[in-house]
């Protein structure tokens, strides 16, 4: 078969979103102070992580900020080798989901350990981190 013909489009679209965080700003500020916050609904008592400003469980918009201790246990994990375009410069990373002692689960990178040594049920700690380029994030580390 002949090689298919195509035109290289002359128009390029590059999209960078602004991510609104006004109503969860304490979470992002907390990360810079080394703290990981969740929110607790003042009416139904549900603990939310990731944090929310509105409780989808009961409809109330009055939540209070609760600092998480961070202790948790790996529920499952993977290691990403084939990465999305915007992560192409990162070395292969381990993503884990862990259940925290407060009852909620979190998804984050697990660092400081080789994938071969990671086990379901392993104890980890969720910690705040500021990246070298100043981005606030959080990750699991082995304990």
């Amino acid at each position: 078969m002949d090689k298919p013909l195509s035109l290289k489009s002359a128009r390029t679209l590059q999209i960078t979103y602004n991510l609104p965080i006004s109503r969860t700003s304490k979470f992002w500020e907390g990360l810079k102070e080394g703290k990981v916050y969740a929110t607790t609904c003042q009416k139904c008592g549900m603990l939310h992580f990731p944090p929310v400003a509105d409780c989808g469980n009961c409809g109330l918009s009055n939540v209070k900020w609760t600092e998480l201790d961070g202790e948790g246990e790996i529920v499952t994990f993977t290691q990403v080798f084939v990465k999305p375009a915007s992560f192409s410069k990162e070395p292969s990373y381990i993503v884990a989901i862990a259940r925290l002692k407060e009852g909620v689960k979190a998804l984050a990178w697990l660092t400081g350990i080789k994938r071969e040594d990671v086990k379901v049920g392993m104890k980890v700690k969720l910690v705040a981190r500021v990246t070298s380029d100043g981005r606030a994030t959080y990750e699991f580390i082995p304990v």
């Binding site: 991510l19 990731p50 499952t76 994990f77 993977t78 990403v80 084939v82 990465k83 999305p84 375009a85 915007s86 992560f87 192409s88 990162e90 990373y93 993503v95 989901i97 998804l107 984050a108 990178w109 981005r135 994030t137 959080y138």
Partner: peptide, 30 residues
């Protein structure tokens, strides 16, 4: 890589992709 970028964002972008770069295979790998 751009296809992986688009599908990887198809979870909860803010909490799974922005900082953690989840991919479609990774969601099923867990």
């Amino acid at each position: 890589p751009t296809v992986l970028e688009i599908i990887g964002r198809a979870g909860y972008y803010m909490w799974e992709f922005e900082n953690f770069g989840m991919t479609f295979p990774a969601y099923y790998a867990v």
